[in-house]
Design a protein around this nucleic acid. Structure first.
Lengths: 189, 189, 189, 189
DNA sequence: GATGAATGAGTGTTCATTCAT
DNA sequence: TATGAATGAACACTCATTCAT
């Protein structure tokens, strides 16, 4: 079970990130001291600086390496060819909702750190854009009735996000049915 | 223009609150030092403690005295008797949107302060509940088609809130039309 | 019941001293803020400076005007001509003990304030000297057996003082009997 | 002369305690700022908090690690079997007196810190009790004349303590002779 | 006399960061 | 790699004192 130096170092780094995520979610980024972070990882404060240049760098690493934004982008970029819009939307929003649920602590961090908040904002914009494009394509294809697809995208995205972050998650299928009652009904049959 | 001592004191207090709102919105609650706050108000740090028991108490005072929650409650509690649902909804969400726009700095504070965040969460829950009740009543009255009013309320509330806080406000009328296309069309005629 | 200005001022001053004695005894001189003192006297901090030049001056005034040192000096200076040494001693120490009991808060102040502690030390020296002189005179007169009157004075003074300040007062008559068993017995007959 | 890191740390801690004892004795606990303490130890204020949780904790450490109370307890608990009461008393009080002399700065601290004062009070009670027991045993054994041993214990203890703390130490042998002239004389022969 | 707004220097304490070991 | 001693600058907060009203 001997670990190579490199493995050991990688393991330490991961442990520091894990611990930091916990502590940040609990106390907020400003509220957590480097000492807190080191203690939670079972390490001395000095060592933290071997792995990260600064506390700030740790936050960035957390966002970059533990962030679910890449996954979300992947999700939104999926080829949906041939499948019903209602089905795709339900699946997509469900996956988004699940992603938020799985990364609750990271989302908490997003709210406490200024820089992270910015990142979240960008993601939201991107997500709404992609969903909007998807909807517009389906309208163009005649599958969905003509409507303000941009607003619809915002509504879908926002509702799932707010539902999850306020602790009372929304029923995704119900949400899609709400906006697209006819399309949804077809699918049920 | 002579001010009495009392007036001068009241003015100082207001100035401190104003300055604090600016600084908090800019740097966040944790990021703003008492020195920052005092400087922004053109005052020594010590004086801040003549008017407020602590930095925390200042945040509370800001929420209590500058908060728009009472206005929002008032808004939601309005009697809507006799008017069309689509009209009421559009007006209500528009007012909510405007409230968020007018209190942008305070909303920023809501995101940076733990305690404020809690207050915001409670408000969101309350708002969604009230809108949901309104919708349910209109469904019962036969004005709106039967649908999941709770989810609809969340969608309406969330969409406006996210739209405003991410800096790309939503078209409220469009949003209502999106959820209630038939009812909205009737109104346009 | 109208008070003249002068009476009113005098009354305020006394009230300030009284309140200060209470607060100092409770929190110590360093631990009591001017605000505390003013509040306890039902007055604003600013007014305190009309009556006393500084917080320090208040402490000095307390020592000078409420101090029991003059009374103690008076006590020790009493003419004891003709009365039995044991009787005089018992009475004297009893009065000293009573003085300490009556001025418990002031004694507490003596322990908390550096300057006051010095004053107490001087008093102790003075008291022991006077008692020593008294004892020496009685030895010279043949009433008391030859002994180290200085040490005896210290013992008498110290025992009463410690007994009172530690909260377990000593039996003064018993103390005199302890040091002067023969003389005391004579007196009892 | 190379010191290991650990030794250096231990040395620093001791130096901080030493310096604190000096400064506290000089200015009192309240009168000494953390900055004063750090400067006296040739250190930055922050470092003090590496070794002690708070200023208060430093006072406690001083009492616990530099306190002479354990030594005093040891002294009083000594087996005195077979030796003359006057001899034991003289030795005991002499040792007590010496202890106070050796720990003058700590005794000064006892007078300035509320918590320390309490500890001192308890010690005094304990000391008087033990001396009282010793005297009572000797009375029972017929070595000392029947007398109020409790008062005698207080007198002995108080006289040495006051003598030393007021800066005019008492002659311990003279004190014992004063209370027990006959027993003392026997011993001299 | 009396107020309390205002100050400036100070308090104890925290903390991100560095670096000799 | 890993430690933890050490720093310096900041922090929230207190307080004796002054003075215009």
């Amino acid at each position: 079970m001997a670990k190579t130096r490199r493995e050991q170092a990688e393991w330490r780094r991961e442990k520091l990130l894990d611990a930091a995520l916990d502590v940040f979610a609990d106390k907020g980024v400003d509220g957590a001291s480097v000492k807190d972070l080191a203690q939670a990882a079972g390490v001395t404060p000095g060592l933290l600086y071997h792995y990260f240049d600064s506390k700030d760098a740790l936050v960035h690493a957390l966002l970059a390496e533990r962030g679910f934004l890449p996954q979300l982008r992947e999700l939104l970029a999926l080829d949906t060819g041939g499948r019903a819009a209602a089905e795709v939307l339900t699946e997509l929003l469900g996956a988004f909702d699940q992603l938020l649920a799985d990364n609750a602590r990271l989302v908490a961090l997003f709210f406490s750190a200024g820089q992270a908040r910015t990142a979240l904002g960008e993601l939201a914009a991107e997500g709404q854009l992609l969903i909007g494009d998807f909807l517009a394509a389906r309208v163009a294809a005649g599958e969905l009735r003509p409507h303000d697809t941009r607003t619809a995208a915002t509504a879908l995205f926002a509702t799932v996000a707010i539902g999850r972050t306020t602790g009372s998650p929304v029923d995704v299928a119900g949400l899609v049915e709400l906006l697209y009652p006819i399309e949804f009904d077809l699918r049920k049959k």
